[in-house]
Computed example of a mutant assay.
Amino acid sequence: MHPTSPGPAAGTPAYWSMLEQQADSFSRSRASSVPGDWADVGALMTHLKPYGVHGLLDLCTLLVLHAIDRCPAELRDGQGRPDIAHLIHGRSDALTTIDATASANARLGRGPATAVDLSDAEQQVVLINDLEATVATALRTRAGHPKARRNVHRALTDRGAGAREATAIFGIVSEIMETIGRHPTHATN
């Protein structure tokens, strides 16, 4: 997939370098953002828009590798791998989803959340909860493995590579990066 605006062609070394820079920047901004402030996401999505869902999943792949590398020991399981149960704040709930839907509608100038939006939001909650296991699988990848990027990407796309899956995975990975960035021992790892 080629971008519709100037930028490196997808899959090239320049593309992966650009995504690595975006992943580093996003990791830092998630660690320092005020809870509920998602301005960094808007800027990132604008930058990735020419690459579509595939670009978002490629970015998520790099973010998972960052999480594997930067996760403090206290947030790891008995085998030393990042433990998703310690990295996310718990399963999504309806109220959080309704709030997020209403906020997204307001940003899009669509007005209050409608019944269709809420139905879609409830479906998204189910999808997010199901995809947490997918992200947990990706977090078990050995970061130093020569095919780590490919293995993480495969794990993330195992359950589908559509827009809903990609945005749900991005949400989960964003929360993980925020947790790692705010953990007191992050600076020592």
Rank of each mutant, 00 (worst) to 15 (best):
P35A: 13
A9K: 14
P146R: 14
C60K: 02
A31Y: 06
G144S: 12
A136Y: 05
D24P: 00
P3F: 09
A73Q: 10
T188Y: 12
D120I: 08
A155E: 07
I68R: 12
I176P: 01
T12Q: 04
A113S: 05
D158E: 15
T188H: 12
A136H: 05
H47G: 05
M45N: 12
P3W: 08
A100I: 05
D37I: 03
E175P: 00
R91G: 05
S119R: 12
D77G: 03
D58A: 06
R159F: 06
A163H: 06
L19Y: 04
G109T: 07
G36W: 09
H186M: 10
Q22G: 00
E122C: 04
Y15S: 01
R154C: 03
E122S: 10
A148R: 13
R140F: 04
G162I: 05
A163G: 04
Q124A: 15
R159M: 04
S174D: 15
N105Q: 02
R142W: 06
E165K: 00
P35R: 13
A67K: 10
P72E: 03
K49C: 04
P112M: 04
G181L: 11
L19D: 00
T134C: 12
G7Y: 12
A106C: 01
L59R: 05
R154D: 07
D77L: 03
A136L: 03
T61G: 04
N105G: 00
I180E: 00
W16L: 01
A23D: 00
Y51L: 01
T167F: 15
K49M: 06
R182V: 11
L87R: 07
L118E: 13
S174E: 14
P13K: 07
E20G: 05
L95M: 13
A67T: 05
A67I: 02
V152L: 05
A85Q: 11
T97A: 14
E20W: 00
A168H: 07
W38M: 10
A121E: 08
G80K: 02
I176E: 03
A23I: 00
D120A: 13
I128K: 13
S32A: 11
D130L: 15
S174H: 14
T101A: 15
A23S: 06
K49V: 01
R164W: 02
C60M: 05
P82V: 01
P8R: 10
D130K: 13
Y51A: 00
A73T: 12
V152E: 03
L62H: 08
L118T: 07
P8T: 08
T179I: 08
V53W: 02
T141I: 12
A100Y: 02
L95P: 00
T12K: 09
H89T: 12
V173Y: 05
G90E: 09
L139G: 03
I169Q: 01
G80F: 10
F170K: 00
S25Y: 05
Y15L: 02
T101V: 15
F26E: 04
R81K: 12
A148H: 11
G171I: 03
